[in-house]
Design a protein around this nucleic acid. Structure first.
Lengths: 213, 213
DNA sequence: CCATGATAGATAGTGCTACTATCCACTCAG
DNA sequence: CTGAGTGGATAGTAGCACTATCTATCATGG
């Protein structure tokens, strides 16, 4: 199909598709002439994946590119793809000196993860993300302990069990990898939305029943 | 204290504090002369809250301003503050025409929420956010049903129960409101981080044990 | 008491990101 | 054969979160 049809079927403007081509998010079509190229269903699917990661997952162009590279790289074994994706999604590496309270929080988090018996690589970005939340709470004067995260950890454990079983049920590597990525990013957004809905429900039940606004 | 001390103790540069003052995120200090003002501990605390919302919660300046307005507005009753915060956090209102599949997903989500027996306002942004995730999954060719969200809903329900109980235990309105906001935003980030850690653990267990990278 | 540095407030500029717009030479469909 | 569409390149834009600079003041230590 031509780029105009790709644009129409994906709902993404032609200039934006050209931009994704330039940025390496979308592989080029099959060139049939100096100024003609042919795009297939896989291009359409790729565009939808890009939009899902950006719109639902909130990823930037750079993060999407990293994730897609990991998905497309056959040399990366299954059990590493999630890690690579998490590195693309997670916070950037440290820039300046790390404050004292952050250092302490990180080691608390590391001990906490170890106490859960979880087998997670030492440089997982989510470790630092979790430590950052702990630091934020404490800087606000709320003296939480890492143990406050335990119920969340138990919940996360059960969800991850379910999700990984689902991934195993799929067939090809490409499908498995993509469903793992989508599971991480899209179901994360779904879980957030559901948590907020549940909070509103409980808030209404506890503090009153009048409608908002 | 003077702005330089506020800057030193908060770790935020003086120009940035001035920027927050201009943007209305931080209330002005008590003016003691045409070019002098005095800032208190509450300003320091407010700055830490701003950074928590921005750095951990990923909110922009506009969203932070809306949330802080809701926190500070005594007229807004407790049971509405969370809703107001969710409106500030959630997706923007529709701009163009809403595609057919989105319309269908929204009504499915509405029926799903009703089937859960949750009492949530009809215009809660999280409804649309959840519908968007469903649409994203389907556009990727994964024909999920809303019911796939049920386990997540159950988990979200239990977490929200626990969290709202914690809010009730606090005392003043200001504290309660702030802890509700912080709970929504910061514990959301913590839950995400823990879910990713749990995923890595299960991924390592299921697909292999070699270290990444 | 006066030089030095900080301050409030205002205006303008920066770097980054995700697009958009314009241009060109070319080509394909009617 | 003409006019809309195309690939490829370059340049421009809008929004965001700061950052820099300026001015008129003010605080303070020698």
């Amino acid at each position: 199909m031509k780029i105009s049809e790709l644009s129409r079927r994906s709902g993404i403007s032609v200039p934006t598709i050209k931009y994704y081509l330039r940025e390496g998010l979308l592989p080029p079509g099959i060139s049939t002439a100096p100024n003609q190229a042919d795009y297939g269903e896989d291009h359409l699917h790729r565009l939808r994946l890009i939009r899902a990661l950006m719109d639902v997952g909130g990823l930037g162009v750079g993060a999407v590119r990293k994730v897609l590279q990991a998905v497309g790289d056959e040399r990366i074994p299954m059990h590493q793809v999630l890690g690579v994706a998490h590195h693309a999604l997670g916070p950037l590496p440290d820039i300046g000196p790390v404050p004292q309270d952050v250092v302490r929080a990180r080691s608390e988090v590391d001990r906490f993860v170890a106490s859960l018996g979880w087998n997670v690589s030492a440089d997982a970005p989510a470790r630092r993300a979790l430590a950052d939340t702990l630091v934020a709470l404490r800087r606000l004067g709320l003296d939480y302990d890492v143990q406050a995260f335990r119920p969340y950890a138990e919940v996360a454990y059960e969800l991850a069990t379910r999700e990984l079983e689902h991934v195993r049920a799929t067939t090809s590597r490409a499908d498995a990898v993509e469903s793992a990525i989508v599971g991480t990013v899209v179901f994360e957004a779904a879980l957030m939305a559901l948590r907020r809905l549940a909070q509103e429900h409980h808030s209404a039940k506890r503090f009153g029943r009048a409608r908002r606004r």
